[in-house]
Nucleic acid binder design. Sequence first.
DNA 1: GTGGTCTAGACCACT
DNA 2: GTGGTCTAGACCACT
Lengths: 131, 131, 131, 131
Amino acid sequence: MEIDLASHVPIFEQIARGIRGEIARGIYRPGEGLPGIRSLAVELRLNHNTVQKAYDLLEREGLIRTRRGIGTFVTVAAARAAAEEVLTAARAGLADAVRRCVEAGLDPDEIRTLLEEAVDSADTGSDSSGT
Amino acid sequence: MEIDLASHVPIFEQIARGIRGEIARGIYRPGEGLPGIRSLAVELRLNHNTVQKAYDLLEREGLIRTRRGIGTFVTVAAARAAAEEVLTAARAGLADAVRRCVEAGLDPDEIRTLLEEAVDSADTGSDSSGT
Amino acid sequence: MEIDLASHVPIFEQIARGIRGEIARGIYRPGEGLPGIRSLAVELRLNHNTVQKAYDLLEREGLIRTRRGIGTFVTVAAARAAAEEVLTAARAGLADAVRRCVEAGLDPDEIRTLLEEAVDSADTGSDSSGT
Amino acid sequence: MEIDLASHVPIFEQIARGIRGEIARGIYRPGEGLPGIRSLAVELRLNHNTVQKAYDLLEREGLIRTRRGIGTFVTVAAARAAAEEVLTAARAGLADAVRRCVEAGLDPDEIRTLLEEAVDSADTGSDSSGT
DNA sequence: GTGGTCTAGACCACT
DNA sequence: GTGGTCTAGACCACT
């Protein structure tokens, strides 16, 4: 998961988004355990309270369930819910970014070109070669 | 200019972006006066200090210049600089949004579809169909 | 008279200081007329209200006297008073500048060197060659 | 740090000057933490926004760096930069004060005498006599 | 506790 | 009217 400290999006929100995305993509499946708050905090070099806040948010959304002393788990209803939330957020984010491009004076074709560049470079981790 | 009070982007930053965009698109031209800090604050229903902070930022960037008791004006170097800043920001924002879409599990074609929807709805007023 | 628009000292105060100095040095003598508000404003490229404010200040101090429709004149008591005020202000300003030098980490000798440089360069207008 | 509420120099600028001087003199060293915005505000009996503005200015100059939730620290490049800025400002201030003395009709010797008085009284605490 | 943003409102300088 | 500074006080994010 990548945290952008310079972003205006609160860090706890970025963490929550990251986990939502991972649930949506099936990286974490219902019943599966999530990394511990402390260890994730160490990995991301953040204070554990910040990670805690992200987990709290996800629990309020019903995506995860914390069991004292045992750990945090993905709920059964999570996969579908996460996918929807992530999709909605992604769509909103894209619409917003496009609006800013239009305001920047870019015409649709230029935006499409930028999109292709962005798709290509975002495509890093996922192997699209089919190998 | 539209201000999103719910956004994580600080209001003063949103104002600065808006004005940068307007300079970039030639709505405000070098030498031209910008709306007064107080009057813009009233129009946007914001506190004048918030608008002041946005103008401060733009002045530090060299896009505008303030003259005591007279008003605020677009600098000669502004148009080009604003266009560049806005373009860079727009590109970064789009790349970011696309990355989130990919993380949401969307494939390139789905992202392209979303983009077309976004372009259409962001296409405020400017009828490109020529009909 | 030199006005420093970038200075934090209000412009009307700078004008007043300038005139006080000129009275103190005998450039304007008791009974003599001062430049008109409008013409001085034009010369200094300022709004006449700003010059007016400076004249008001000097009148309150008793250095000058305005006679409607005739002009502004240096009062009899002015010369001595101006000299005192200017001297007090100059002394205070110097003490302040020295304090800042000390705070900048300069030792007395370095400050003395700077002073000699400053005295030399401030010596521009006054012909010390005796020619 | 001493704040002169009657000065024409804005309070936030006075605070920035004070801290620049303290960095220049090595009172605060690179990596070291500065007093918190809120606590300094309390100490100086000022509003925290005013101190904030001073810190903003210093951050823009690259002298200090703020870390959310942690505090404000002197940057590595700060010492040299601060010393230069402070020296330049001190030199300019002294030149200005001397110019005013000359305009007040003081001759170089009188200015030198005033300087010695100022140096003596500004010589707070640091006994250079070695006694 | 530490910094960041924002509002409401006041006072000043310049045009 | 136009900008600049400051205060008092509130709310949020991160440690």
